[in-house]
Design a protein around this nucleic acid. Structure first.
Length: 197
DNA sequence: TATGCGATATTCT
DNA sequence: GAATATCGCATAG
């Protein structure tokens, strides 16, 4: 697999959210390799009231202000880690949430980490995806375009057919169509009724 | 298949 | 003290 270079990443948050669908997340864990093909993302662009960066920089969201291609990992609902990709220039706070992947390598390890063998429950949804790939605060702020424990790889197959939909679980800016997904892929999370195109 | 609710901790008000 | 970029189990239809 070929690692993505920072220069390949679109420098606009929503363009990056669309670009990442079909790309691959790779997790190097104790010499083993876990990987998954991204099938669903959400953009949290500059000025978005639903973005963690909206009210400025804090200790929690600092990684959103790194240059694009760095990870931003946060914890919510008392039990779920979420993996995001910082999406703008250094000093600007914005990001793309990775909501779901399709498991490729290391499925047995993911099953152990998740405590289930059901393939569809492994990485469908942001909290599950983080658990399946052993992602926590230790991976916050990592450069995903460099060699390391977590990185992004180029797409393996042809460009996916991309659909758009509203984001999940928000109250502010909930009507914005800033979720991107691969059409027809069973690993896309959320109610089918929200898929608009 | 669809909807509802409790668990859980970090952050900001 | 309230809200939250969720999950998994429960119940009903």
């Amino acid at each position: 697999m070929r690692r993505l270079r920072r220069a390949e990443l679109p420098s606009d948050t929503l363009a990056l959210a669309r670009f990442l669908v079909g790309k691959i997340v790779v997790r190097e864990l104790d010499g083993a390799r876990l990987s998954g093909r991204i099938v669903e993302t959400e953009g949290y662009p500059l000025g978005d009231a639903a973005s963690h960066a909206f009210r400025g920089r804090t200790p929690r969201n600092g990684s959103m202000f790194l240059s694009r291609g760095h990870s931003y990992v946060y914890f919510t609902y008392g039990s779920c880690f979420m993996l995001n990709v910082a999406s703008e220039e250094r000093g600007v706070g914005a990001g793309v949430l990775l909501r779901a992947v399709e498991p490729l390598e290391g499925i047995e390890t993911m099953q152990r980490l998740r405590g289930t063998t059901r393939l569809l429950d492994l990485t469908r949804g942001p909290g599950r995806l983080a658990q399946a790939m052993a992602i926590d605060f230790a991976l916050d702020g990592v450069d995903l375009t460099a060699r390391g424990p977590l990185w992004l790889a180029a797409a393996r197959d042809a460009k996916p057919r991309i659909g758009m939909a509203v984001r999940i679980g928000l109250s502010r800016n909930a009507e914005r169509v800033w979720r991107f997904y691969e059409r027809g892929n069973a690993f896309v999370s959320g109610p089918k009724a929200l898929l608009r195109s």
